[in-house]
Amino acid sequence: MTLLTIRNMKTDIDQYVVLHDISFDVPEGGVFVLLGRNGAGKTTTLRSIMGLWKPSPGSVLFKGEDITGLHTADIARKGIAYVPENMGIFGTLTVDENLILATASGRFDPARLARIHALFPALEQFRDKQAWSLSGGQKQMLSVARAIIEPRALILIDEPTKGLAPSIVDAMAEAFREIAQTTTILLVEQNFTFARSLGRDMAVIDDGRVAHSGSMEDFAADTALQDRLLSLSA
Rank of each mutant, 00 (worst) to 15 (best):
L119Y: 01
A40G: 04
I80W: 01
D207K: 14
T72W: 00
R146Q: 13
L230K: 01
D227K: 04
D66A: 11
L123P: 02
A173N: 11
V210K: 08
S59A: 15
E174C: 08
A221Q: 14
G88Y: 02
Q181S: 10
G214D: 10
L164H: 03
I13Q: 05
S105W: 00
D128C: 01
Q190L: 10
P27I: 12
Q125P: 00
A114Q: 13
V31E: 05
D227E: 15
G79N: 11
I6N: 04
S233H: 11
A175M: 06
F192K: 04
D218F: 00
S215D: 07
V204A: 12
D201R: 05
W132N: 13
Q125S: 12
A171N: 11
Y16I: 13
D218N: 13
G58F: 08
T2H: 04
T103D: 08
V31G: 05
V95W: 06
D158S: 12
Q15S: 15
T223H: 13
S143H: 01
L34T: 01
A221R: 15
A153F: 00
T68R: 09
Q15V: 13
D21H: 11
T183E: 10
L70F: 12
I205N: 09
Q125T: 14
Q125H: 12
A180K: 07
Y82L: 11
T103I: 05
E85T: 09
S59L: 09
G214T: 05
D128E: 14
L123F: 02
T92F: 08
I148S: 05
M9G: 10
S143P: 03
F32A: 06
E159D: 06
S133W: 02
V83S: 10
F126Q: 02
V33I: 14
L156C: 15
P84W: 07
F126Y: 15
T223D: 04
G30D: 08
I116G: 04
F192R: 03
K139R: 15
G88P: 04
S231K: 12
Y16T: 15
V188D: 08
R7D: 14
D170Q: 14
Q181C: 05
Q138L: 11
K42D: 11
S48L: 06
L93H: 09
F126E: 02
E28A: 15
K162C: 05
R47K: 15
H20A: 10
I155E: 07
M172P: 00
P84E: 12
I157P: 02
V31S: 08
T94V: 06
H117P: 01
F62H: 10
L70E: 13
L225V: 02
Y16G: 00
V31P: 04
R200S: 14
F219D: 02
V83L: 06
L123D: 00
D25Y: 02
P57W: 10
L52S: 05
W132R: 14
Q226T: 06
G58R: 11
I100P: 01
I6H: 03
V204W: 01
M172C: 06
P110S: 13
P57T: 05
S135C: 07
G214R: 05
E189M: 06
T45F: 02
A211M: 05
Y16P: 00
A220E: 12
P160R: 12
G208P: 06
I155D: 03
I149K: 07
K42E: 11
Q140I: 12
W53K: 08
V60K: 10
D14V: 11
N191L: 09
L198K: 03
W132D: 13
L154V: 12
S197T: 02
